[in-house]
Design a protein around this nucleic acid. Structure first.
Lengths: 131, 131
DNA sequence: CTAGATCGATTACATGCGTAAACTCGCTGT
DNA sequence: ACAGCGAGTTTACGCATGTAATCGATCTAG
């Protein structure tokens, strides 16, 4: 048995992920700054944010290092990894784990923006060349 | 104010969606059949399934019509609609609401299967022709 | 007609989540 | 030395969810 790794981090909730987004943009940060960042996006009271930080700590998604009277928080879970697991979760549940059926679904319901189509085209070409 | 429509159905949970999947495959169905269908996929006790059916009823995601002693259940919420709202939720939260960035993410992490690439290519071509 | 089998309806109960207040303890200024 | 502030810690609380057991009414077989 190997030691725990990032994948053993329990699912982080919606509200928690909002806090993670802040830390992914900049870290390490003290509670104060996090609160400041969030003041406009969400009307959360400071205690709420503290609770979320503690839950994230307990889950192992972030790390805290003391700096004088307070703590500085840093993500352990990486954004890309989180995005991957969230997306794969959805794909697995709804599209047999594959990307194409999702795109097909969106296409069918005309939810693809011009921009999407152009970008997809580029992506595919790249992948194609790439051999 | 117009009458409630499908979009007013509250979010259905993971477990509830498993029951929905059964009804989307075939309906109307009595509890008994649903239980039978689910016996292998999940090791749920019968009362559990009944609870889920009741919650789905309360949420307005399914409808029940009496047939003698029992009820036959039918989905009100459609699968395609549910899939759309689930997927859009994820896209909004993680990819600014657009599909291409999601595909890019998967591409970057080499999570696209050969099959996906081929299928995506076809899709794009279709969309392109389509004008 | 009465008891057991069936269904649905009601109640249960732990855990997670969103949201926050209350408490505590050490620093800091007077 | 003492009061207040500022930061973290503990407790709270209602609702959703996963997972069931129990209750109650009804049909059916003897």
């Amino acid at each position: 048995m190997q030691g725990a790794s990032v994948q053993d981090i329990p699912p982080i909730s919606e509200a928690e992920s909002v806090v993670m987004e802040v830390l992914w943009e900049a870290s390490p940060l003290p509670t104060e700054d996090i609160v400041a960042f969030l003041k406009d996006r969400r009307h959360w009271q400071e205690p709420t944010i503290k609770t979320l930080l503690n839950r994230l700590l307990k889950k192992g998604a972030i790390r805290a290092e003391r700096e004088g009277r307070r703590y500085l928080y840093t993500p352990i879970l990486e954004r890309e990894e989180w995005i991957s697991s969230e997306s794969e979760g959805l794909l697995d549940r709804l599209f047999s784990g594959r990307v194409a059926p999702l795109v097909a679904h969106f296409s069918k319901h005309r939810k693809l923006k011009k921009k999407d189509i152009a970008e997809l085209k580029r992506l595919i070409e790249e992948l194609d060349d790439e051999h």
